[in-house]
């Protein structure tokens, strides 16, 4: 039962990843793209967690933890860049 649930989870997350990537390409402003990137990082964390269950190795949770940490830093850095210069429409 768990095997099928994990496969379903990975498929759902892949669909979410495709949708978010669409927003990453459309996003009219840089801020939209940053929001999309942040969501992509969260989806990647979710994929790591599902994969840790699939292969039965808890070590992948460390990867998820580090990814969550760096994604937040990236968001803050981008916001800083947006606010203190850099063009707003590209």
């Amino acid at each position: 039962m768990i095997e099928w649930a994990v496969v379903a989870t990975l498929l759902i997350l892949a669909l979410a990843l495709v949708l978010t990537t669409a927003r990453l390409f459309i996003g009219p402003s840089l801020a939209d793209r940053v929001v999309a990137l942040e969501l992509i990082a969260l989806i990647a964390v979710g994929i790591m967690l599902a994969y840790a269950i699939q292969v039965d190795r808890p070590a992948f949770m460390d990867v998820a933890l580090v990814l969550a940490l760096t994604a937040f830093m990236a968001a803050v850095g981008f916001a800083r860049l947006l606010e203190r210069g850099g063009s707003s429409d590209e």
Partner: peptide, 21 residues
């Protein structure tokens, strides 16, 4: 419980992605 949390969690992420679009 594992199956339940996995599916609701990924469903919520999908809803977030649909919202982003």
């Amino acid at each position: 419980l594992t199956v339940f949390f996995l599916l609701t969690g990924s469903g919520l992420i999908l809803i977030g992605a649909i919202g982003a679009v």
